[in-house]
């Protein structure tokens, strides 16, 4: 009985330790917020000379892990990586609709966060439709879809100068199938990272 308890305890410890490590590597550093602008100038504070205090060796904390990532310089590769890791996410629509669902909003919010951190890039928003409508009307519908996303990204703080739109209507389906699963994939704003 005690052996089992011990085993469980060790297992728990291992799990917790792993979880801690996992958290550390996954976490990205919190965004640096600009200090609030002081309305009155405070009197200059003269800092006392620093006193060197050696912490006990046992309590030295490990440096926080910093994950570095070199973004691919090739824009197509960058797009592939960004889509794969979910930095940039396409927004999907219902049939003959151009309003953003909760899922579409969250995809765009996620994409906006990446854009904020990577200010040297802009976004081409491609509006796409499924094949069930007519070509010419769908070109107009795709334009509306692309611009709905553009407006939403602007409300999230992305400058309009970084955002371009184009409508492909039903001309470039992502899935060539002719069923609802294909159509659902084809009704989307496809986000493409571009140089600013």
């Amino acid at each position: 009985m005690t052996k089992t308890l011990k085993a469980v305890g060790i297992a728990l410890l291992v799990v917790l330790a792993l979880a801690a490590v996992g958290c550390r590597t996954k976490k990205t550093p919190a965004p640096v917020t600009a200090p609030p602008v002081a309305t009155e100038t405070a009197p200059p504070v003269v800092a006392p000379p620093p006193t060197r205090v050696e912490p006990p060796v046992d309590f030295v904390k490990p440096e926080p892990a910093v994950t570095e990532e070199v973004l691919p310089s090739d824009i197509d590769e960058l797009n592939r990586v960004a889509q794969q890791r979910g930095y940039i996410q396409d927004a999907f629509f219902a049939f003959d609709e151009s309003t953003l669902s909760a899922d579409a909003q969250s995809a765009l919010t996620n994409s906006a966060n990446w854009l904020k951190k990577n200010s040297s890039y802009g976004l081409l928003i491609e509006g796409h439709c499924d094949e069930r409508g007519t070509e010419q009307y769908n070109l107009a519908l795709g334009d509306r879809r692309a611009n709905t996303a553009k407006e939403y990204l602007q409300t999230l703080g992305i400058d309009a100068s970084r955002l371009r739109t184009v409508s492909y209507g039903e001309e470039r389906p992502f899935d060539a199938g002719h069923d609802e699963s294909a159509w659902a994939k084809n009704r989307r704003d496809h986000l493409v990272i571009i140089g600013k």
Binding site: L139, A140, R144, N147, T165
Partner: peptide
């Protein structure tokens, strides 16, 4: 033709 301003064709 069809032109669009801010998503209004």
């Amino acid at each position: 033709f069809v032109g669009s301003i801010n998503g209004n064709p």
